[in-house]
Design a protein around this nucleic acid. Structure first.
Length: 456
RNA sequence: GCACCCGUAGCUCAGCUGGAUAGAGCGCUGCCCUCCGAAGGCAGAGGCCAGGGGUUCGAAUCCCUUCGGGUGCGCCA
């Protein structure tokens, strides 16, 4: 199967919204892999639209700047200073050969250079989060291979493409609305509300057209299941993408679209003030630098994908019960602590593996055993419903049960893992610690969070 | 106006796809501990599951509807 996520435009650094999509998609992919699927993690590069021309012009300004010219970035371009190194790099490669030339001459060259640089930066950002993609699919490459025309021809054969005029949207009719004939895709035949334009009135493709080609490409690769992870602002695209995949696969390839809601940033309960100046936003890298990949990942996975997320930087780093990441890590560290002590006392893997658990009749042991026993079923449900957050919540519950057992043992000697005078029962009790640790480690592994074995 | 998502404790959120007295964390109240296995522990109060209707032996969960919030809605990607 195929999971597509992030797919941010290659025009700048990834921000926190992208981070959530990346973390969600990555955890979902790992979860499905765990469930037995062969998963391709894919990133779709929008490197063919107008936005990459804007990128190229912005980069060309930085290129001039690298030549010592005092230039002012024109309005409408990307002002972020992340393009400055790109300008310097271009000077090193091209010298002054791209200066004072007509745009038509330098644009394709600068565009390709800048896109390559942006994608390198994006890969680094993703790597900082622990996210690695299997495949990067270029929109421009698909277009160059005539895939857009081919996909549209396919739909045309099915009688799903026609010339028509759309009704204006009710209620908020734009001032300049006038009926225009466009090339439309009959998505209503597959459950959409209205038919969708694939060509603009000037004859150029809409954004939808290359997306059709891209999904046709994915269908053609023979996946049993496609999953798209989109930002919530792409919610309006879900029904048309489902329609087009159904049409192109003769309803054989299911497409599940997961919408990831917005992230609101806080610090000590106060909303994070962001300057409105374009190009100034909280980047994925800022996030990782401040809280680390483990905290970023677990915190964002403690929320359903379709619910908005409040992310508090201060809380994320707190070491207490309100910090779920810390709490789960702590449980694992405690489990490993007793396992280490056991090993020192001569009770190792072999003894634990051969332990007879029937001696664990105390209610406290039964409780933790029940919780551990939920693990397989829970993982199965999480994978089936495409909801990695369930794993995170389960780990939090399991850690809670383990801490509760631990605390009870202060009063009740019988619930201690290592008891002076009852060495014979230690292997069985340590087996419970081992089971908790295995469940937590495997669960955290799927979420992409390092399972620590010691608190520092 | 239409579509999608959301509405569960004071706050932030879970709720195993229709099952028994609806859960957690924070906050609040009250005890205990602050020595041995960590950076505390235990208990309690607090819910018309937004409102209404329906399906069902049974609904927070499924359907319809109202209200409230978010996102999006041809020639932007």
């Amino acid at each position: 199967m195929n999971v597509e996520y992030v797919s941010a435009n290659p025009t700048g650094p990834l921000h926190v919204g992208h981070a959530r999509g990346a973390i969600f998609g990555d955890a979902l992919a790992a979860l499905l892999e765990f469930a037995g699927w062969d998963v391709t993690r894919e990133y779709y590069i929008n490197d063919a639209g107008a936005q990459v021309d804007v990128l190229a012009r912005s980069a060309h300004f930085r290129y001039q700047e690298a030549h010592g010219r005092a230039v002012e970035i024109a309005p409408g371009l990307y002002p972020g200073d992340y393009l400055a190194p790109v300008g310097v790099a271009m000077k090193a490669v091209f010298g002054d050969t791209l200066l004072d030339r007509p745009e038509a001459e330098w644009l394709p060259v600068v565009r390709e250079f800048a896109i390559t640089a942006m994608m390198a930066m994006i890969r680094e950002d993703l790597a900082a989060l622990g996210v690695t993609m299997d495949r990067f699919q270029s929109e421009a490459a698909l277009a160059a291979q005539g895939k857009v025309e081919a996909a549209l021809a396919r739909l045309s054969e099915q009688g799903l493409i026609y010339q028509g005029v759309l009704e204006p949207p009710k209620g908020k009719t734009p001032e300049d609305w006038e009926p225009r004939e466009q090339t439309l895709f009959r998505s209503t035949a597959y459950g959409d509300d209205v038919d969708r334009p694939v060509k603009k009135s000037d004859g150029g493709w809409t954004y939808f057209a290359p997306d059709i080609a891209y999904h046709f490409d994915k269908v053609s690769r023979g996946y049993d299941l496609l999953i798209d992870v989109f930002g919530a602002d792409h919610g309006g695209y879900v029904s048309r993408m489902k329609a087009v995949v159904a049409a192109l696969s003769e309803r054989k390839t299911p497409l599940d679209v997961k919408l990831v809601q917005l992230v609101k940033l806080f610090r000590n309960g106060e909303p994070f003030k962001m300057s409105k100046r374009a190009g100034d936003f909280v980047t994925l890298r800022d996030l990782v630098d401040q809280v680390g990949p483990d905290v970023a990942r677990f915190t964002m996975l403690m929320r359903k994908n379709d619910a908005p997320l409040d992310f508090d930087f201060a809380k994320a780093l707190e070491q207490s019960k309100d910090n779920a990441v810390w709490y789960v890590q702590y449980a694992n560290a405690r489990a490993h602590s007793v396992l280490r002590s056991g090993a020192e006392a001569g009770i190792g893997e072999a003894e634990i593996g051969a332990a007879d658990l029937s001696s664990l009749t105390h209610e406290g042991w039964i409780d933790i055993a029940k919780k551990v026993a939920e693990w397989p079923r829970l993982m199965e449900m999480a994978a089936e419903s495409h909801e990695p957050h369930r794993v995170a919540f389960y780990l939090f519950d399991l850690a809670g049960a383990f801490h509760a057992l631990w605390n009870r043992a202060r009063e009740e000697e019988a619930l201690r893992f290592l008891q002076a005078g009852d060495e014979a029962g230690a292997p069985a009790r340590l087996a419970m610690a081992k089971a908790v640790s295995v469940a937590i480690s495997a669960g955290l592994g799927i979420l992409g969070v390092t399972p620590v074995t010691e608190m520092r």
